[in-house]
Every structure is written in structure tokens, then in C-alpha cells.
Design a binder for these strands. Structure first.
Lengths: 276, 276
DNA sequence: CGCAGTGTTGAAGAGCCTCAAAGCTCGTGG
DNA sequence: CCACGAGCTTTGAGGCTCTTCAACACTGCG
């Protein structure tokens, strides 16, 4: 699939409905292709968010040239599949998605949500096989970078190479928190923890409208993220409804202190991280 | 604590026995200090393992100068604590340990084991607060690197900077597998999965003696790694004893295909990864 | 209208946790 | 020499959390 022009879709495939067992991979192997967009980094609104560290002029110039273009995905489409060899990697620009891992029995784990500013696919670029499947829950736009030019990032702009390590380390940090949540917390604690983390991450991106943030997922996604059955996820959400409401793709936390208490969370906030 | 001379201990503190609730941090805040060792990278036996990619002569020279020295830990000692600001980061050279995260109620999660070749502390160096506590289960030796010189790694040796990103991505990959294991697998599946992963990683380092690898941990550690109670861990291990024996610090897998079947694992092997 | 996807609720059972206690191997001290 | 205690492993019993199965309500769509 070639890079397509303005207005057309960037490509992608419809994600399969959750198959009970076997035929989970009867999917097209088309890959979304990036399309060129002129001088976008300078205008990128993400860079203005306080969640991210600042760019130097030199870094900005370099990233403009390093960027290949944009990849557009519609809700439900897949960016790449677990096991794919990746020629590109991405930074999410808008919309929301998630990374999934599938087991041989058809079960799946939602490893992490993909929010604006998240860099994904780096592992798949380096190791020749993506560890996760990435799918969009809403329409999404990604900034796209080419595998073959990754070395330039280190030779031409050490600061950006440094940033990339920082990004990886921050992701690793968050994954370790997820591990602790899955391993040590009860269903209610996990749910409170996840709602707080999600809300916090989206708020830090400036996406909050009052107490509400957009969250275009299904209860099944949250269940797969927390390692809970769909039924129990529903009942756990119902039990927290006094403190958190989630309807029509909007998540509203009306009593964050209560949720923090339930989640056994300290109250610190994450330091600014780099954006690629 | 200053860098000490050959034969003396590198420092460290005794890890606390698992406190029931409150006083879990009544510990000295002494930090182990590295001691200089001349020209060690060229003779490092880890580099010869096929699990790692090769060094160029230039890279080797650079790492010799980049390295600060070695840090020695005795079994039970702590390298650094969750929340510490780190001036150093490390690559494990020998021995085994683990990274832990503690919850406010005293429970803990073993996030990942630390085996020779693993780079740790990078996240703590970049984010000003370590995400995990690192403790040694056997006597350990670490190669030590200084935070303040991290930028040199990117400006002087882009290849090593690239390697660092690769290392981070590989770790991120493995953590995502842990997440899937904790979220989707039953106790028996988790146990079989963990034993296979542990055995594989140690075998790839050339530490296997027949079907056995050294594994100097306690059932409590495995329980905290898998998110299971100690009692259930014991019973699950007993149920797998026909396929896996673990006694006197040695783990023996006598029937790997059976364990793979139980763990729902594909049979592929990980690609070579960089060593720092 | 029928159907697919999603959210909700109830009931029964399995898996895992907690509590409790006993055996084992150390090292220590009388 | 044996007694003693600490740390670890092992085993049993009871109960709670979470899963599975089943059914129904609601929505949007062909």
C-alpha cells in the first residue's frame, strides 16, 4: 500500500471481534502507509504540553527531517500485528489505542494503552518482530519514523538519542507498575488504580474537560488490561460508580481521593518526560 | 562510603525479612560504592556468550573508559532502594538478584530477576527516583557506570547509545510478557512459564549444567514474582515436580516440552541482544 | 424487523488465599 | 553433646474472590 494523499485513509485493517478460540488471525496483512505532511513538528501542539520536556531549535530541525510523515488509523484498525517485522516506528499524535498480546488459546492481554505522545514500535524495529499488536480504539494519527534512519538519530542528534533512552526507561517504569498492580492488587484495587492512572495520563495531556477525560474503549478492553473477566469488570466498575463514572466514551472521576485510598497509591506526580 | 580495596566488601545493607506491615524501611541508607578494576571489559567472559551481540574494537575501548569500576554485593544486600536518586547505573556481571516494588501495605512484587548481562538503574538515573529496589539473592558483581557521563555515551559512541536503546526495548518486551503472564495465566501456567523463562535465560548465559541451572532464590521470591501466595506457590511447585525440580539453589527442568505445553508457550528463542 | 455488539445482573462453582501447624536444616549457645 | 530458635518448606482445612454460565435490556444498523 503506497503513501496516500490528503483525505484518503492511511490504511489499516479492522480488528477482529474477540474470537472464542481458533481463527483469530484470518486478517489482511496490509500495512498502513505514512503520508507526508510539511513541517509539522514546529506546529505540533503536543510539544507545548507541560508533560514533555522542551526541544532545542536544533532538535526541532532534526526531527522535522527525521519524520517520514503521518499514519492515519480509524477506530478498530490495526497499526501492526504481534510478530510483524517493522520498517517504521511511531509516536501517537491524537486519538487513543492499545497494545495487545495474544495467547495461543485466544485470550489476550492489553499490555498498555497508547495515548498521544507515546512512542511505539521501537522494540519491533530493533528485534525484527513486534512484541504486541497495536490497534486504535478511536481514530488516530501517528508521526512516523523510518527504521533505516534510526542510526542517524544517534549520530546526528545525540540529544534525541538520549531522549529515546529516556522514553524507553519511562515506559519500562510504567510497565513495572502494571506488573505490581496485576500481581499484588485485588480487582477493586486494580480498577481504582487503572482509572486513576488513565485519568492522570490523559489529564496531563490537556485532554480533561472538568473531571472528565475521553476514553473510547469497551469494558472488554479494561477487563483484558486488568486480567479480570468481563463480568467481574462490570461488577467492579459498578461498585466504584460512586467515585468514577464511565459512559459514552468519557471517564469522569468524581472522587479521586477515595480512589487513591482504594488503590493504595502515593500522591506524587510523574516528572516531565521527553517526546520524540 | 568510599570505594574500597580488593577483598573488602563493596558495601550494601542486609535486606529486611518480609515485615508483616509497618516498619519495612528501618534500614541504613549506606550505598555500595564501586571499586576500580583495570581493563576488565576486554577480559569479560559475558561478551563471549552468544546471547549478546559483538563489540567493535572502538566500542570496547570506549566502554573501558566509560566504566567506573565494580560493585560487589553479598547475598541479601540491597544495591539501591525504590525512590533513591541514583548517581550510578549497573550491568550485572555475576550472581543473581531481583528488582522489587513495595506496596503501602507491605506486600511486594518481584518485577524481574537480575541475571548476568542485565543493565539496571538506568530508569533511576534518568528519572531521579528508582522505580524498584534491587537486592542480591546470591553474591553479585556489577559493572558500574556514572550518571554524569551518560551523555558521553551518546556523543562519543553512537553505537553504544543505540545499544542502550536496544537494551531498554528488550527489557520492555520482556516486561510485557510478564504482564501477559500475570494477567491471563492460571497459577500452574504462570509457574510453568516462569520456570521455562528462568531456565532459558540462565542457559543462554552458559550457566546450565546438564538440565540444571543455579537459582538461589526462595519460594517467597517466586511467589512475589507470580503474584501468588506462598502456600499456593508451594503447592503449584509440588504439582509440577514431575517436570521440574528445584532444591539446594539448583533448578532442574526434566521435561521442558511438558512445561511448554502447560505454559502455552511458542517455541521460538530470543534474538541476540546488546550488552553494555 | 431481526441481529450484532455492548452493558447489566444472578447463581453456582473453582481457584486461590488465609490461617494454622508440623517437619526440616541450619547455626548458636549452654 | 544436645537444646533451642530462626528460616524455610510442606500439608491440611475453610472461606472468600473471581470465573463461568446464562439470561435479559438497550442501542444502532441493515
Amino acid at each position: 500500500m503506497a503513501a496516500d494523499v490528503e483525505g484518503a485513509q492511511g490504511g489499516g485493517e479492522l480488528i477482529q471481534p474477540r474470537a472464542p478460540a481458533s481463527d483469530a488471525k484470518a486478517l489482511s496483512d496490509a500495512r498502513p502507509a505514512p503520508r507526508p505532511v510539511p513541517s509539522a513538528c514546529a506546529r505540533c501542539s503536543l510539544r507545548k504540553q507541560t508533560a514533555f520536556t522542551a526541544f532545542s531549535a536544533h532538535e526541532l530541525t532534526f526531527m522535522e527531517s527525521f519524520r517520514v510523515g503521518e499514519t492515519h488509523l480509524r477506530a478498530g484498525e490495526v497499526l501492526y500485528h504481534e510478530g510483524d517485522a517493522l520498517d517504521l516506528f511511531y509516536t501517537a499524535k491524537s486519538g487513543q489505542g492499545a497494545r495487545y498480546k495474544y495467547l495461543t488459546n485466544g485470550d489476550r492481554q492489553l499490555v498498555n494503552f497508547v495515548f498521544p505522545g507515546d512512542t511505539i514500535g521501537l522494540q519491533g524495529v530493533l528485534e525484527d518482530a513486534a512484541a504486541c499488536t497495536v490497534a486504535a480504539a478511536s481514530d488516530m494519527v501517528f508521526c512516523t519514523f523510518r527504521r533505516t534512519r534510526l542510526n542517524e538519530l544517534f549520530t546526528h542528534s545525540p540529544d534525541r538519542g538520549f531522549a529515546l533512552v529516556w522514553i524507553s526507561a519511562a515506559e519500562e517504569h510504567f510497565l513495572s507498575e502494571i506488573i505490581a498492580a496485576l500481581g499484588q492488587r485485588t480487582a477493586q484495587q486494580r480498577m481504582a488504580w487503572a482509572l486513576l492512572k488513565i485519568h492522570r495520563r490523559l489529564s496531563d495531556l490537556g485532554l480533561a474537560q472538568g473531571d472528565a477525560v475521553p476514553f473510547p474503549f469497551r469494558q472488554r478492553d479494561l477487563a483484558d488490561a486488568l486480567g479480570l473477566s468481563l463480568v467481574h469488570t462490570n461488577k467492579t466498575l459498578a461498585g466504584l460508580r460512586a467515585h468514577a463514572q464511565w459512559q459514552d466514551g468519557m471517564l469522569t472521576l468524581s472522587n479521586r481521593p477515595a480512589l487513591s485510598e482504594i488503590a493504595m497509591l502515593p500522591h506524587d506526580q510523574p516528572p516531565p518526560r521527553p517526546l520524540l
